[in-house]
Design a protein around this nucleic acid. Structure first.
Lengths: 124, 124
DNA sequence: AATACGCTTAACATGTTGGTTAAATGAGGG
DNA sequence: CCCTCATTTAACCAACATGTTAAGCGTATT
């Protein structure tokens, strides 16, 4: 997964289209493994493991109810991911020219905390 | 990388803290491989390959200028990533209760286009 | 009690990732 | 020309990801 930090786990989980499809499904309703497997073209064990990945990334929670295990979307970790990406909005937002971006970058450079967050040397 | 689609490539690229650090660096200024390697605790070939990953995800562009190759942040693909995540904002936005989220989800279920985008069956 | 169902775990195959060191490439400078 | 510097490619390795099928484990169902 590359990093073992939260953000890496989330981005890594999102990097698979099957898992994104599962998230999209769970955004509409909680679902069992069988229900999630139905529209996918892979085996149930494969889905089960995708769910484990999503669970490790804290993107879903699971509940037991008799024979069934329902998965529920827990999108909180998406916020961190969104926040991280948002920092670079100025780079794609067309209302900003590259000069604007440069000036914004220079300002950002002043904030020391900005860099630390993703410096791998800071991890573990 | 799981999927070979654009979105998967971008999320996959972001899943590594070293690559996020490189992006953060390039957000401040264009940089050569040597410059990017300096603050990292890995070898230059390793950085070179991280750059190749970022390039394949279209997150950077590179220019030759004599002996040096400068990398430049091309954040456009981040927009897609941000847009994808944004769809689930209602699930983490605290101003919305779970009931609200459910109602929003029911509405979303009506829009067929919502599901197709990430259905793996649609890929390739 | 026996069977069926839902799901997970095990064992396996295969491809990818991310790091290393050593060699190759390519442009400039003496 | 040769040498050096910046970067990439090659060869290798350990670890992980993703899929499969078969077996295991609980919990209904009959």
């Amino acid at each position: 997964m590359a990093g073992t930090d939260q953000l890496s786990a989330v981005f890594s989980a999102l990097a698979d289209p099957t898992r994104r499809a599962i998230i999209a499904e769970l955004a509409e309703r909680d679902a069992t493994v069988t229900e999630l497997t139905a529209p996918l073209s892979i085996s149930m064990p494969a889905v089960s493991r995708h769910l484990k990945v999503l669970e490790r990334a804290a993107l879903i929670s699971r509940s037991r109810s008799g024979k069934w295990r329902a998965s529920r979307l827990e999108a909180a970790p998406l916020r961190e991911a969104a926040d991280w990406i948002e920092r670079y909005r100025r780079f794609w937002d067309s209302s900003l020219t590259r000069l604007d971006a440069h000036l914004a970058a220079v300002q950002a450079a002043g904030r020391a905390s900005d860099r630390m967050v993703d410096d791998p040397r800071e991890l573990e």
